[in-house]
Design a protein around this nucleic acid. Structure first.
Length: 889
DNA sequence: GATGCACCG
DNA sequence: CCAGGCGGTGCATCC
């Protein structure tokens, strides 16, 4: 099927210019925007595989819009010369790409694109519009997808009408109504003052269009109604200005836009001229780009010599083992404890050959040397996702040792926010020969199926090859980022520590759980009955929608806040509504118990392994953006503790050996101690050096009172301020948390900062650093990129600023406990202890301990945890033990 | 598959 | 003028 990709040239080059750091060639010409444009084009060609292409530009100064409104785009800054000089470079580059370009005096790129998409709609042809400008969304249709740049220019979000509706609740034609109401500062479109995106969307969801809003304006109360009536004319005109003109005469004919891919040598020459060396290196000009238009222009897969290993070929493989450089173990299924191991692919760079060993062959008697090789700590191996493979193989009695590099773990450290850590994306990023996506090979969801052997073998061997090619590049990048030690000394060894913990598992008493579940069930039935009586009807209490109808329509309770789908019924709202009606308290209790029943009783029961009588969680090491672990199947990092009712769940977690104990040790105030260290704040440091109660100390300093004058309420407020500080404080956030006014919250914060001046300086500095470098780091050089730190959108920018403040704190705390875990595992082994490390809950470690080791563990666990790293303030660990997790408080 | 809600640090 | 706490997972509902 034919497909046109049309790029809004001006919009994209602007985006690229501001998204990328300045970059000049040896002649002093700026090239950053062209560079960004180039990477975007390469990606587009590869992903969209267009048969037709066009880049449209604005032309001339006066467009027809100025005839109606002289100030159109009036307030806009002049194009900086560093950008203007790049337009001719871009146009040359497009010629090298062989991509048609078009501009027409008196019209903007929008109008050209609008006209082309109208024609495509009429003729039923597919178009993707690429732009950074939300206005373009009005063009979305059955045939037209609008791809908007997101997060710089490297990624796009594709909008068809359905997605548009999901995001904004609007039809494409309503986008101009949206602009009509909210205006657009960058185009000097006024809109209605005081109406931003949120209000505009609310109005449109209610009235549908600018005209309808205006005609009903008399019915809109308050300041809002006043503004709308006052600025009716502005709104009408703004809507008109935002409307893309779709009748540009003489746009190019469809056939003239045919695109058969670029010509390798011409493009190579152009990139060399621009001095885009890194891009040239990454690109593979040998295979693809043949210009036949069939494959698109992306580098094609090279042919690859793959041997499916059977009994007859095992000998050859075993002989080749010393030359194996990288491998891939395919374990399918989300939960590694239940994953199916399909087989092992091995790659030998010398011969360029791949070997695929199906699991049955691997498990056969003749494959013993291969299994020994896998288990040999002295034969170095490289792979993707060591942690998962190690767990999946262990359940089959197959040890895996000697893995020296894990491409997945490295990719996570290089960019922990990157969600696409799969191999297909990594090879693309590094410009290496392509690997198909797992989704393409296996399908997904209900359609998941293992392909025929030859296809499977080819795919998995290509993965092994990719690991081999990626390893040196990623090692170099880790080195450049100062993360070499973080990888080799911490994260890599941790993977195996985690595997051991998970395979050990924690004994979970199913009978206890079932008994508790029966009690819950009885109470839930009673409460449900009572709720129905109060409501005067039966309904599904679990449905926020139905619950909302009962509370707000039937019983007439006031709406406190709204979600995007209706009035909110969350616990915070219900607390406020409690005085109005008895039913509210019952709903809160119902929610609490229903949660315990579904997630903790039923959910946990499903996860108990019948063979071991334990639950075996899986810690994910490559998910959290801050460097924390997360836990799945089941999540053992969110077992209830705050309310007594739920805390009882902890009684079902027991030692797996009779007479043993559950032993817990947690860091006290680790995040604030970390903050004291990295900010160097004198008073905070002093507080910890004297081992004071930090919230009381904060209350003393903020309220200016002595220790015995601090009451419970003052301490509670100080505690909230401390939390706020760690999270990247805002007066709004604190006011919500403490249920006080924003002003009062702002006063608290000011008071706090005037006392803890070092903290204030840290907060200011870290945001500056993020803006300058584009990322922040933890104590161990873990890195998180914050591209939105310079966004013009307040929300995005503020979020990035809070993240800049929080990530070094949360991330350093994560570094520290990870260090402690690796050291703890070594220590247990070195001392020949039987005690086992079972769980990690962010600032807490859980062990099972035989009675005769209890005293030893009381000594060494705090010793190891407190000594994991040396900070300017002491680390403090509190330990406890009991016959189950509940008792080890 | 998205959303709202609830659980944890 | 507007919008907003940091990091996660799991369940039930609804489309």
């Amino acid at each position: 099927m034919e497909k046109l990709v049309v790029v809004d040239g001006n919009s994209i080059i602007y985006r690229a210019f501001f998204a990328l750091p300045p970059l000049t060639n040896s002649a002093g010409l700026h090239t950053n925007a062209v560079y960004g444009f180039t990477t975007m084009l390469l990606r587009l060609i590869e992903e969209e595989k267009p048969t037709h292409m066009l880049v449209a530009f604005d032309a001339g100064k006066a467009t027809f819009r100025h005839e109606g409104y002289a100030e159109y785009k009036g307030g806009r800054e002049k194009t900086p010369p560093e950008l203007s000089e790049q337009f001719p470079l871009l146009k040359d580059l497009l010629r090298a790409f062989g991509i048609p370009q078009y501009e027409k005096s008196g019209y903007e790129a929008d109008d050209i694109i609008g006209t082309l998409t109208r024609i495509a709609d009429e003729k039923g042809m597919r178009v993707t519009v690429v732009s950074g400008d939300k206005d373009m969304l009005q063009l979305a249709s059955e045939h037209v997808t609008v791809a908007l740049t997101r997060k710089g220019i490297s990624e796009v979000e594709r909008y068809d009408p359905a997605h548009l509706h999901e995001v904004y609740g609007l039809k494409p034609h309503q986008i101009i109504d949206l602009k009509g109401l909210m205006g657009d500062a960058s185009d000097n479109i006024p809109g209605i003052p005081g109406v931003g995106e949120k209000t505009a969307l609310k109005l449109l969801h209610e009235y549908g269009s600018v005209e309808e809003v205006l005609s009903q304006a008399d019915g809109i109360k308050g300041k809002m109604g006043e503004k709308i009536r006052e600025h009716a004319e502005d709104a009408r005109m703004s809507k008109k200005l935002a409307t893309i003109f779709r009748e540009v005469p003489e746009v190019p004919e469809w056939d003239g836009l045919a695109y058969g891919g670029y010509d390798g040598p011409s493009l190579q020459a152009a990139l060399r001229k621009l001095e885009f060396k890194s891009l040239l290196e990454k690109m593979d000009f040998s295979g693809g780009a043949d210009g036949d238009g069939e494959e698109g222009a992306a580098p094609a897969q090279e042919s690859f010599d793959v041997a499916v290993v059977d009994d007859a070929k095992l000998g050859e493989l075993i002989e080749a083992l010393p030359a194996v450089d990288a491998m891939h173990i395919e374990a399918v299924g989300e939960n590694p404890h239940h994953a199916d191991v399909l087989g092992v692919a091995l790659y030998v760079p010398e011969s360029g050959r791949g070997y695929y060993v199906p699991y049955d062959v691997l498990a056969s008697e003749a494959a013993a040397p291969l299994r020994d090789w896998l288990a040999d700590a002295e034969t170095p191996k490289r792979m993707y996702d060591l942690h998962k493979a190690e767990v999946a193989l262990a359940w089959r009695g197959l040890p895996l040792r000697g893995v020296r590099f894990d491409v997945l773990l490295a990719a996570y450290l290089l960019d922990p926010t990157e969600s696409a850590l799969a191999l297909d994306g990594l090879v693309r990023k590094y410009g290496l020969p392509q690997v198909a996506s797992d989704e393409d090979v296996f399908g997904k969801g209900a359609k998941f199926a293992v392909p025929e052997l030859a296809r499977l073998a080819d795919h998995l061997c290509r993965k092994a090859q990719a690991v081999s090619l990626l390893t040196p590049l990623m090692e170099r990048d880790l080195e450049e980022g100062g993360m070499h030690r973080l990888y080799y000394d911490l994260e890599h060894p941790l993977a195996s520590v985690l595997s051991t913990m998970e395979l050990t598992g924690i004994r979970t008493d199913g009978d206890d759980l079932r008994t508790y579940g029966e009690q819950l069930a009885a109470r839930l039935t009673d409460i449900m009955q009572s709720i129905y009586e109060h409501a005067g009807m039966e309904f599904n209490i679990n449905s926020p929608k139905q619950l909302g109808e009962v509370l707000f329509d039937k019983l007439g309770l006031p709406v406190w806040k709204k979600t995007k789908t209706g009035p909110s019924t969350d616990a915070e709202v219900l607390e406020k509504l409690a005085p109005y009606h008895e039913i509210v308290k019952e709903i809160l209790l119902y929610r609490q118990l229903a949660k315990l029943q579904s997630t903790y009783v039923e959910g946990l029961l499903k996860e108990i392994n019948p063979k071991t009588g334990k639950v075996h969680t899986y810690y994910r090491q490559t998910i959290a953006a801050t460097g924390r672990l997360s836990s799945q199947f089941p999540n053992l990092q969110n077992i209830p503790i705050r309310l007594e009712e739920g805390r009882k769940i902890r009684q079902v977690f027991k030692p797996s050996e009779p007479g043993w104990y559950i032993f817990t040790a947690d860091y006290s105030q680790i995040e604030l101690r970390v903050l004291a260290h990295i900010s160097g704040d004198e008073r905070l440091r002093e507080a910890f050096l004297n081992d004071m109660d930090i919230h009381t100390k904060t209350a003393m300093d903020v309220f200016g009172v002595s220790a015995n004058q601090v009451d419970a309420n003052m301490r509670r407020q100080a505690k909230a301020v401390n939390f706020g500080i760690v999270y990247g404080i805002s007066d709004y956030g604190l006011s919500q948390n403490l249920d006080i006014t924003r002003k009062e919250a702002a006063n608290f914060i000011e008071q706090y900062f005037s006392v803890f001046q070092g903290v204030r300086k840290y907060m200011d500095d870290i945001v500056q650093t993020a803006r300058k470098d584009g990322f922040v780091t933890t104590l161990l050089q873990r890195r998180r990129y914050l591209p939105e730190i310079s966004a013009s959108n307040f929300n995005l920018r503020s979020f990035a600023e809070r993240t800049a403040m929080n990530t070094p704190i949360q991330g350093t705390a994560a570094d520290i406990i990870k260090l402690a875990m690796v050291q703890m595992a070594e220590r247990l082994k070195a001392e020949g202890l039987q005690s086992r490390m079972l769980l990690q809950v962010h600032d807490e470690l859980v062990f099972e301990v035989p009675p005769d080791e209890l005293e030893t563990m009381k000594r060494i666990v705090p010793e190891v945890m407190e000594g994991a790293i040396q900070l300017d303030v002491p680390l403090k660990v509190e330990a406890d033990y009991g016959t189950n997790w509940y008792e080890a408080k």
